[in-house]
Write a protein that binds this DNA or RNA. Structure first.
Lengths: 354, 354
DNA sequence: GTTAGCACTCGAAGAAAATGAGTGCTAATA
DNA sequence: TATTAGCACTCATTTTCTTCGAGTGCTAAC
């Protein structure tokens, strides 16, 4: 949408002011606030126009104006366009190196929440496309095997397989060799019926054990689709914004952040999108967030590991700072994990560096 | 504390009524509510006595009475004493069997929250005293080993060990045999300097690899002391009780439930105590809970696995029901895990039954 | 020891009034 | 023609005042 320059300036001024105060903004304020040198009466006329265009609205007669979703959208688009190439990468968050993936993500959410004063969420990376590095079977008792799977990205998963029939130590060893020979370097998706059948053939008398083991491996590596790993922090920040904490959706919001499950919709939706996304009010993919704005950034650690970082706040969120912060974070994450190189990322959380 | 029978009846009536309504209770209400056949004037006299004894209090002149912490304490003690042998074990929660420990505990918290309308927390079992079943070392690359540890309770932990010097496939195998021979059946606490030294001696040229591996194992099995595994649910239930949601500590409360860290104090404190504990207001080991009551039960799954289940609500909580529910749950948990027998409990959460 | 009766207290709820930020419109001005 | 000063009007918010009633403590009678 194109907008007369003066109108644009006034709209921006209104929004900026509202972001700060959270109070409806009157014409007199703008008249003094800007360097436009216009009287409040003139501003009033322009404001009437802006209201007609659906960019601002009066909560009630004789109140100032507040931005509509559409108004915010205009502001954000304009800001994103202007700042495209000059985001503040200097102001990096203090993100100390941590050994463990899980702890790192938790800390990330925490730091981000503390820095922005909004609620944050970080999704653990999904790793479906990750290739198998090796599989280690160990016999636990007569009919049970512990399978440990390590992927190229050094994620370790373990699973106990119940075979329903006895198996000897020797056979476990054979099976181990066989599995590694056949599956090494494959991603879970690539394990198809062909491979399974040839595995069974080669396994000969052990063929009946192949299926449960593969099933267990697949399930272990794929992870729980229903229960997403999401780390949250700063949920209580929403109490800092009366328009959120007093809305009846506050409870739902906190509930969603506690259960995490409901946030998955949001994660999935922005996982596919490149770069930084801004959802304003109704634009949100998730019903409960319709009184909020959400800014998300997706990260990519290579090896098919990717997830998102999200910030949830009131519509009058400091978009500029939030987008800037997330932008910087994205770069920082990239750098850290590029540097980490071969270093481990352990899922069960017990990887150690040195 | 011993109390005149009539006074006790009146106090109980006041508390019962207050638990229901949350409103101060007046003399007339009690006069009709009970079967004591006393006029309101008499009740008033008794109430004046009870107030003098510090069991009830007037929020302001010309208001009814509400129980003090001391009053609640009297009520709870009396109730616990009376019901000691007749808790309602019939009303068992629908706790379907789940494969994975983590999921089971999460679900437990959830079910409990839904059933009681309070906030709940469940601590994952600590397992320091648990004995090692076997250790499996796998060579990941030149200088890195993946150590997988399984304990008697079938908890699986994995950790990546960086040796800082190359090691051959053969040596890993030797080390594997050595470790299992020496450590099998020991608990982590039992691995002392003696054992470590004799291990080093036996390891000969590999002795330098012993220490980092043992350190990693110890750390893996001991788990993070700082970051307790606590599952919570129903935090938003506190919004159902105005006296909590409107108190300024509501934010802190929710924050504590989100961060979990602060709850650890509570967990540790009631971990040592047998049976069911009731903390009323100031009695709570945790500052932020001074406007609440907390009821905890510790569970014991054998093999040194034990943790706690807690319910946090307003002081005017339905103690009778909560204590009953926890009591039943305790029995149920015992039964389930007795039945489970050798079945696995996988920490990385990927144990499967059949 | 119990109870009826009564004056008294004080929070809660409501009504009325005062306040003031902000508007829209009109007529004067550059 | 665009801008502005001026003014009447609106309406949420705040304050003040009033009313209401639940509940008390005390006293005197039973």
């Amino acid at each position: 949408m194109e907008l007369e320059d003066r109108k644009s300036k006034i709209l921006t001024a209104i929004i900026r002011n509202y972001l700060e105060t959270g109070e409806p903004v009157g014409s007199r304020t703008i008249s003094k606030f800007t360097d436009l040198q216009l009287s409040s009466a003139t501003i009033r006329n322009e404001m009437a126009d802006l209201e007609e265009m659906g960019l601002i609205i009066q909560p009630h007669t004789s109140a100032g104006r507040i931005p509509t979703d559409k108004g915010y959208r205009f502001y954000v688009d304009q800001m994103m366009e202007a700042r495209k190439h000059e985001f503040d990468d200097e102001k990096q968050l203090l993100l100390q190196r941590v050994d463990r993936m899980e702890a790192a993500l938790k800390q990330l959410a925490k730091v981000l929440a503390a820095n922005t004063n909004y609620a944050t969420l970080v999704s653990a990376p999904t790793y479906t496309q990750n290739k198998l590095k090796f599989i280690q079977l160990s016999r636990v008792d007569e009919a049970k095997i512990l399978a440990v799977i390590m992927t190229q990205a050094n994620i370790v998963k373990s699973t106990l397989v119940d075979l329903n029939e006895d198996i000897s130590e020797d056979d476990v060893l054979k099976m181990n060799v066989l599995l590694n020979a056949s599956l090494n370097g494959l991603s879970v998706d690539e394990i198809n019926l062909n491979i399974i059948n040839s595995l069974k053939t080669e396994a000969k008398e052990l063929s009946r054990a192949v299926e449960p083991i593969l099933t267990a491996i697949a399930q272990a590596v794929t992870g729980d689709k229903d229960e997403p790993q999401i780390y949250t922090s700063g949920t209580t920040n929403i109490f800092k914004y009366p328009e959120l904490s007093q809305s009846n959706s506050a409870t739902e919001l906190i509930g969603a952040f506690e259960e995490k499950q409901p946030l998955n919709e949001l994660v999935l939706s922005s996982m596919n999108k490149e770069g930084i996304q801004v959802y304003i009010g109704e634009e949100s993919p998730f019903e409960n967030l319709k009184d909020c704005s959400v800014v998300t950034a997706n990260y990519d650690l290579g090896d098919g590991l990717h997830g998102i970082v999200g910030i949830v706040g009131p519509k009058r969120m400091d978009y500029e700072r939030v987008v800037g912060t997330l932008h910087g974070l994205k770069n920082q994450l990239d750098a850290i994990y590029k540097e980490m190189g071969t270093k481990k990322i352990s899922d069960s959380g017990i990887g150690k560096d040195e």
